[in-house]
Design a protein around this nucleic acid. Structure first.
Lengths: 245, 245
DNA sequence: TAATGAAACTGGTAGTGACCACATGACCAG
DNA sequence: CTGGTCATGTGGTCACTACCAGTTTCATTA
């Protein structure tokens, strides 16, 4: 057995167990579609209660690593790329997991009062200031998207150009500096045609087809945090999602 | 209190409770962002154990109806449209929840051996036959998408043109007739331009921009069931998803 | 008056024990 | 050989209990 559970660790046991099991799955210790030890066996193996074991397995089932069959057992999902599969990802994460080097050019970063539609989406009072960040997103150095974020930040919460240039990922700053954990988002996608200005920035002909994404990001407490609009080059970007029932 | 829990019902108690709470939220009995009764209060109110209550609340939290704050309580999510929000939806469900009447023209329905790429996506052996269904999808009578499905069905599982015309939704037939429950899907979206043939079927000019979606659908046991390719009219369709961490 | 700290709440984690529902394979009767 | 039955294994549901970890309230203290 690879690792054991440390009952004195501050990390919950069910979480420790989930990590151990996930590792075995990713390492290929267990074949896809093969049964993992039964809940009663795991009880003995790791000396923890079935309650805790079921909580760990629940987590992995939700994440798509395992599936259960009543009366038969719990089995390893055969999804090939399950490891790197996140659902709600930032632009940078998204590119990184495809093996593309993310990059950015920050065109502007300033506090402004946005148009009413955006204020409404962010559930803010009229004339409230938000932080607008305009960036050209790069994949392996080539422009692939035009991104405009509008952030609903509280007093005292600030993001500087330097931080953004350094970290690269807005989501990282939100989480680590501001303790805002992105937890859900509503996104819409549609097709549009590039205006001359957009075309110039993306280095494509005017009128070329673009993929337009609009996303509202919510924090743990379901408060809207960011409204972001991204224009992707139609010829260089493919959007992927994993959907669940 | 609206409804109570029937301990003799075959439906699990946690599920009954989740339904009761969901109803209160959707009815607006509880204000968004207000706290629902604490777990210990619900224990008394419904005369069930905290284990069961937490399981019901877990379900609603995952579905986005509620959120928890450690030490403070459990609160109603303020998402306006949460009720109709599903993640993995069929074409018909998708349109219906936007108030558009779905329709279809079935162009063909036959067993064929698809190209290797599709067999591989469906994890089938070479030269395996699958059921291909070509449909023009309509919204309020107007063509909005061109859909080609490839279904990996077992011996004896069959779908007829009549059934499909009658029920309208492929997912309904999968679930109710074949007992295949769609549970997860991987989807990619990109932009393309209409070929003359596609343009004719969709009643748009050749070269008009389209939204191309490719989806692999998985059943409960993570077996691939359907590979489906949909071409949406760029000017009439907007794709929406809810993403989760 | 302002600081503090204890009490009383909240959800989070964990163990134990029980019984139900479903799947499977061994066994037996026809 | 066929079909039923039963034991045993699996996950699914549920109750009760205990304690931990944050938050809020409010009486007490400096």
């Amino acid at each position: 057995m690879s690792r054991m559970i440390d009952p004195y660790d501050a990390i919950p046991k069910y979480y420790q167990l989930a990590a151990i099991l996930r590792e075995k799955i990713e390492n290929g210790d267990w074949e896809p579609r093969s049964a993992i030890p039964s809940e009663r066996q795991l009880e003995v193996l790791y000396d923890i209660s079935r309650t805790t074991i079921r909580e760990a397995i629940d987590q992995l089932v939700r994440q798509g690593y395992l599936y259960r069959e009543h009366g038969r057992g719990t089995f390893v999902s055969p999804q090939k790329l399950q490891k790197a599969m996140l659902d709600l990802t930032s632009f940078s994460e998204d590119l990184l997991r495809r093996g593309i080097q993310p990059g950015q050019i920050i065109r502007s970063l300033e506090w402004i009062v946005p148009i009413p539609k955006i204020l409404q989406r962010l559930e803010l009072a009229p004339a409230t200031k938000v932080l607008r960040i305009e960036r050209i997103r790069l994949g392996d150095g080539v422009p692939i998207g035009l991104q405009t974020s509008f952030l609903a930040l509280k007093e005292g919460q600030e993001i500087t150009r330097e931080e953004l240039e350094e970290r690269g990922s807005l989501y990282t700053i939100l989480q680590e500096k501001l303790r805002i954990i992105p937890s859900e988002a509503d996104e819409t996608l549609e097709v549009t045609l590039a205006t001359p200005e957009e075309a110039a920035l993306l280095q494509i002909p005017a009128g070329a087809p673009l993929l337009l994404s609009e996303r509202v990001l919510f924090a743990q407490d379901r408060r809207p945090v960011e409204y972001v609009k991204i224009l992707y080059r139609g010829d260089r970007y493919r959007y992927t999602v994993r959907l669940r029932r």
